[in-house]
Simulated scan of single mutants.
Amino acid sequence: MNSNRFPRTARVRARSDFDRIFKHGRRVALPVLALHFQADPAVPARLGLAVSRKVDPNAVGRNRIKRVLRDTFRHLRGELAPGDYVLVARPGASRCNGEELRNHFRSLLKRAGAWPGLALPATAATGTMPAASPSAPMPDSGPG
Rank of each mutant, 00 (worst) to 15 (best):
M1P: 02
S94H: 11
S16N: 09
L49D: 06
R64C: 07
A34Q: 10
D71Y: 03
P91I: 03
T72G: 14
K23V: 00
R20P: 00
A131W: 01
P91M: 08
A132Y: 00
C96M: 08
G98K: 09
A114M: 06
H36W: 13
S16A: 14
P82H: 09
L108R: 13
R26S: 04
N103M: 02
S133T: 09
A81L: 14
A45V: 02
G117R: 07
L120A: 15
R53Y: 04
R67F: 06
R64K: 10
L49I: 00
G25D: 08
A124R: 14
G83N: 12
L101F: 03
R111G: 02
R13M: 13
A112K: 05
L47F: 04
P143A: 13
R62T: 05
R67S: 13
P41M: 10
P137D: 07
P121K: 12
R67K: 11
S52H: 04
R27C: 15
H75G: 14
I21C: 12
P139E: 11
N58P: 00
A89N: 10
K54F: 02
P44H: 08
R8A: 15
L80G: 08
T72L: 04
T9A: 13
F22H: 11
R11D: 10
Q38T: 01
A119K: 12
P116R: 13
M138C: 03
A39S: 11
T126P: 11
S141A: 14
A131F: 01
H104K: 09
V12M: 12
L69Q: 04
A132S: 14
G142T: 03
A81C: 08
P130Y: 05
G78R: 11
V51M: 08
T126S: 12
A45F: 04
R46S: 13
A114D: 04
P91R: 05
R64V: 03
A81D: 11
G117L: 05
T9K: 13
P41D: 13
G78V: 03
P82Q: 09
R11G: 10
F73E: 07
R90F: 09
A34K: 01
L109D: 07
H104N: 14
D19G: 06
T72I: 00
T72Q: 15
S94Y: 01
G25N: 12
P41T: 08
